[in-house]
Design a protein around this nucleic acid. Structure first.
Lengths: 140, 140
DNA sequence: ATAGAACCTCCAGTGACTGTAGAAGCAAGG
DNA sequence: CCTTGCTTCTACAGTCACTGGAGGTTCTAT
């Protein structure tokens, strides 16, 4: 299970595609736990940190604020907290997520259409703005 | 077609859920065109600006940088540019979009699972980190 | 033993907004 | 017509989430 289980910050950075400075920043922000240190004061990470940091980076890439990511991490950190709290945090995010999925799907469709039109040598009349503007495929 | 076709900045802000200052910021960044001005120097916007700004906001909310949004807007601004360029810009984004859709779908699934477990009075062993970490449902 | 890479802390800079100060414009009531 | 109050204007400082660099230490490898 633990293929690399006692790695320095540079290795964690490499595995997650994160800048070393950013990892230290997340630590000061309390998004990543304070890691163990070697006698010389160097940070030591493990596989759990890789998973946690990957989650943070993906969450940010998906347009969630650090604060929202923090809330979602709270679900992982306190899996035995009250159902009410967990349910609240989870529900809060679902509507936003569904909207993002809808928007991305529309955007993807339009980019696809543009590429296909190009293949046929026709320059598409560009409807890319509509992809995120028109109320097509609304879920609610 | 033009229900509100000569609006001040405040109205554009209201319609798109954007801060007035942010609209002015997008103008200086060249993401929004320089609008017409009244004799007194006030900005005047129209429906096309509403659509464009909506696109920018959605794009940002989906985690794309202003620069990437700028590139996608270029598809709308120059629909008759060379197919090669259009195709390049479009293709560049599609892989990123697919990954985002996959990640969001996984995340949504896990939040759903957490909520359902809560309904049953069972506190779920939380696998939220896995939602964005495990290589399930990879497209490529 | 020493060159070079990786690490440390601290702090300044960037991207993308967000808020505020101070002045000018405009619409409505008295 | 005038004042009260809201909107807009420019300009600039502040915030969030990083990102990069300076100056110094530690580790690794020859």
């Amino acid at each position: 299970m633990a293929y690399q289980d006692r790695m320095p910050i540079g290795e964690l950075a490499r595995l997650t595609g994160t800048k070393v400075n950013t990892i230290r920043f997340y630590e000061t922000e309390g998004v990543l736990h304070q890691p163990l240190r070697t006698a010389a004061g160097r940070r030591v990470y493990n596989d759990a940190d890789v998973r946690r940091l990957t989650f943070v980076r993906k969450g940010r890439d998906l347009g969630f604020s650090l604060n929202t990511v923090r809330k979602m991490l709270a679900l992982a950190d306190h899996p035995y907290q009250s159902c009410k709290a967990v349910d609240g945090i989870a529900r809060e995010q679902i509507a936003a997520i569904d909207q993002k999925i809808t928007d991305l799907t529309n955007l993807r469709g339009e980019l696809d259409r543009i590429i296909k039109a190009c293949e046929n040598g026709i320059v598409a009349d560009c409807k890319i703005l509509d992809a995120l503007t028109l109320p097509t495929m609304r879920l609610a």
